[in-house]
Amino acid sequence: MDTVVDMAKAIKIQAKDVNVFYGEKQALNNVSIDIEDRSVTAFIGPSGCGKSTFLRCFNRMNDVIPSCRVEGSIMMGDVDVNSLQTDPVLLRARIGMVFQKPNPFPKTIFENVAYGPRIHGLAQSKTELDDMVEDSLKKAGLWGEVADRLADQATGLSGGQQQRLCIARAIAVGPDVLLMDEPCSALDPIATSVIEELISELQQRFTILIVTHSMQQAARVSQKTAYFHLGTLVEYGDTKDVFTLPKNEQTEAYISGKIG
């Protein structure tokens, strides 16, 4: 692991001076951050600190909330995610998202994974679609468990399986970046450890941003950690540094459990 972290990595996303408002209330203040390619970056901090709001800026999910306004630039390559010219629908095909509660569609397992390729017209033939579904389920570590029951309702799967199905569904669209909003908060410890292992594997192919309430989880899965407090980015650095030698008092208080 250490060798991976030590390697200098390319910057995948560059957020600069991001401000978010809900109506009059400001939820994020001038957040700037560089996200490394093919690594896991964890956003931690107490409830209401703006970490989920920030995560939702990366795929414009805040557009769904009528009173929400996002300022600043989030450059991914030469595309400004936050620009009005950028089509959020196309953007979300490049930046997948996994939510807090598993939210499979009330369709079959196959149809759930095939959903993205279908709406984006990614598969030319039925066999190609089958291959994509199989490939995505394999990457999400679910293929072995569901290979013989792809036609079953997805809602019949266990919580952990549902969440991995949601990851497979996101992967199937072929994104570069995966956003995960507390993906294990609704799961039991065993399902959580399965997902955490999966995240470590996926990190070789995707840039992953994960919001988590569990500091142990952040320490286990991420290479970079960003600590948020009251809408500001307080500290950002290599995970092992943030957890062992926090530079900021607030970060230290949070990590040692004094606040939270």
Partner: peptide, 26 residues
């Protein structure tokens, strides 16, 4: 549930696709 709509938007569905393919079947 809103989470189903979020899931569909998160996969790059337009509003119409979300309604026709996810919300109405649900």
């Amino acid at each position: 549930p809103q989470s189903l709509r979020d899931g569909a938007y998160g996969l790059g569905s337009t509003r119409g696709e979300t309604i026709i393919r996810v919300v109405l079947p649900a």
